[in-house]
Amino acid sequence: MSLLELNNVSKTYENGDAVLKNIAFSLEKKECVGLVGESGCGKSTLARCILQLASIDEGEILFNGMALQNKNERNLRPYRRNIQMVMQNPAISLNPKLKIRESLLDPYYQYGAQADLRHFQYANEADFAKQLMGAVELPIALADRYPHELSGGQKQRITIARAISLEPALIILDEPTSSLDILSQASILKLLNGLREQLELSYLFISHDLSAVNAMSQKILVMKEGSIMDRFSREELFFENRHSYTKELISLYQ
């Protein structure tokens, strides 16, 4: 059984624009699937649908074989801790009025008592925060600062630490490096790759940057105007039988 399976997922906005058309793919445990496409092709909407932040009109989204669609917030709560997300802009995914520690431990406060973690072994809250900061290679001293006192790369590391804190099965990475400078981008990708192996995570890596997707993923999906145009494994990227749109994207990055 696949960890995540989407069957014929479609979504149409109220004004009649079809934003997702018959999306189908599966994602296995410990796998990273890359989803690439230009801005506005529906990548982020797909992420929001998987997280049930937006509803779908047709199809089904199965997580460990259980359908997620049409569940209300209360019934979704057990799944929430298993599907986490890292967003594009770390500056607005941390509450500016709360200290880093408060934001970082949000999932812990919610699920801490019932969390049965394999990797993180902690005696108390402070110890847990220290381990999380350590996992993303940040000094614990930063935990008592406010988000505006940190750099973009540091903030993104905090959001990653928050996403991994409950050792979820799946993390959706929605353009996690696009708002960072080139050096931070490389180190964040390296960190994400390391964490995936260490914590046995699965990623759905969404990006418009084909080179970043290629560096991270075993499987790559190319999306255009709400449909998946092409799908292939990493090794097949430069094969002759690639879709013309994929070739166009490749030529942009060469």
């Binding site: 607005i92 500016p96 949000d106 999932p107 959001t159 928050r162």
Partner: peptide, 12 residues
């Protein structure tokens, strides 16, 4: 804002 969305994703 995104931090409220994240709080929802975190199950709050």
């Amino acid at each position: 804002k995104d931090y409220i969305t994240m709080a929802k994703i975190n199950g709050l």
